[in-house]
Nucleic acid binder design. Structure first.
Lengths: 193, 193, 193, 193
DNA sequence: TAGTAAACGAGACGGTACGTCGCGTCTTAAT
DNA sequence: ATTAAGACGCGACGTACCGTCTCGTTTACTA
């Protein structure tokens, strides 16, 4: 008795091909080497069809990124705050340096001026932030943290350091960077006594 | 003696008008609302002339940013590491939120894919980093820091937190943010016990 | 008795609305401002439905013009050849200058390249021509005309003069034009003695 | 020492190729098979260039028709009004039935709705009319015509008959048509008595 | 003070992509 | 059987900038 028919009605029938082409081109030619016409050509889907569903390049890109869940996340309990924060930091590092996601992240920066992508990025960060809250709850339960510590600030420091280093300063990350910044945030800088 | 009017022959005669138009348009319409043709129209300088001197939009933008020293910097000695770091952090905050420079910074992110701008940004960061080194030298002399602390990492944490918060997460900075992150970096997070 | 609602099964149920919309749009926006999609929108009938019945814009227009009998005709006996010809000429003038039909006639010219409309126009002219034959029969019976006069040529002269003047030369018709051309055709041009 | 340089500045450098392509396509595919894109492709001139000079299809067509003087005219003195009128009529016939010009004329009808072409046609007719005035002056001098005969009306009758017959009724012209209508206009229809 | 080379203005051009419109075909429901 | 709903491929539209080019004209330094 199942009714298959429209597989949800949302989006074009060839969404998969479109998204694939979108991300391919994004990675190959960067944010503004990504053109609707190019996506149409590569995906063999007509330009009109793409415009019918995605009013702008940004909307298309957003849909593609969401669809492909190109920016994964998860947060296992490692048993200690330090371990958890290192894990989170490594995750950020991986996201920004791994092959598909890193290019996408860079590209996303290219679109920050456009409200569409900016909103998407903000939302993505908010989601991550939310999913990282438990780390701090667990830490408080373990007595590793006082109640007044702002998780957002901690994440800003750690994630910010990585983004800044990788995307803006564009300088290679030395091994041990994650551990170093986490230790600094946890314990402060060593005074010479 | 009679020093020639031409200050070096570098650049077009109407450089000032061109740069002004460039930054105006950048701020008004964002990175890719900035077009050479627009600059030509606004500055009343012929398109050909602009192309003669700046082979690309990025080159033009770089020249304009350098010329206008839109991203100023300086580092006074406040007498303590904490004070110096807070000053530096405030400077970053100001740069990213003040009216002309903030727009330019955002716009610069939009051009990170292009090697030209990316290099410019990298160079700018390197310069800043260099100019902030003395802070750490002074701190070591005061005994506030051991010799093995990496200044770059500290700056990554502080500047990164601000960039990340302002440009990527696009969330308002609460007052006291600078002090909070500096204190965290200096002293670590408070443990509950 | 109970007359069926469906008048013949010929044509869509909403034929009236479709035709109305067709002629409205034709008159408002001209021949090629007339679009199937526009007709569908205005008549609230689905585009598919229109295509099912009328394979092309021309077919639709032809059907609409036939249905609305937008180009009426009739030929009363006025008692003299001159009177009859003047009546016919006035009829043509009215057709080309009156509000609904004039626009339609102009529009039809716009479609003369398409075989569909061209055929329709030819057919319409042939019908008119046929209906005007009796004028000449009556004239012959009255002795106003010899047997060898070609009615078609006379109509070509009179109707042609009006079409040419109104549609092609687009010059206002002075009052008395009909009488003047009829008299010329009947009696020739006056020689100076 | 003459400076040739720009050969008059009016119009694109490749005007000839553009016009040729325009008329070719017009004749092959009719008025609305004539597309700017097609002209660009056929003439190897970039679409943008065409748009730079001709804001619309009609403007292009008008320019092409004027340039190629596709609708020639001239009026020799044959020694009698009858001869002159027959010559004029033959000229119209030739224009409407000859290979290049006839297609163009039909096509022009297709554009009568557009003010641009309508104006062009009106102007063309006015020019012709003007050039035919001398016929009537000569006739009056010869005593073949009274002073009050309106040349425009005569031309309307003759040219109208041909246009109507050829383009609207789309019926073949029998040989002798020109002479027949000229004689009718000159002498009227024969009465039987 | 005249000559000359660099810089500039003017503007046509080929080219890519834009975003839109209407076409005519098709599939899938609902009536 | 007819209609509605709407996705789709397609071709052309007219526009905006791109970056390149040629050709004259200015400018301002220098010989």
């Amino acid at each position: 008795m199942f009714r298959a028919t429209r597989t949800e009605g949302r989006g074009p029938r060839q969404a998969a091909a479109i998204f694939q082409a979108t991300l391919d081109l994004l990675m190959q030619h960067g944010y503004d080497g990504l053109t609707i016409e190019g996506v149409a050509a590569r995906s063999k889907v007509n330009k009109t069809t793409i415009y019918r569903w995605y009013p702008s390049k940004d909307a298309l890109l957003a849909a593609a990124m969401i669809d492909r869940e190109v920016l994964e996340k998860n947060t296992e309990d490692t048993g200690s705050l330090r371990g958890d924060l290192i894990a989170v930091t490594h995750q950020v590092i991986r996201m920004l340096t791994a092959v598909p996601s890193g290019k996408v992240a860079t590209a996303a920066l290219g679109g920050l001026e456009r409200p569409g992508l900016a909103g998407l990025v903000r939302m993505f960060c908010a989601e991550r932030m939310e999913s990282e809250k438990p780390i701090f709850d667990r830490a408080r339960q373990r007595g590793e943290l006082t109640a007044d510590v702002d998780p957002a600030m901690v994440i800003d420091l750690l994630a910010g350091a990585v983004w800044y280093r990788v995307l803006i300063r564009q300088t290679a990350l030395e091994s041990g960077f994650a551990e170093a910044i986490v230790d600094t945030v946890l314990s402060g800088l060593p005074r010479s006594s």
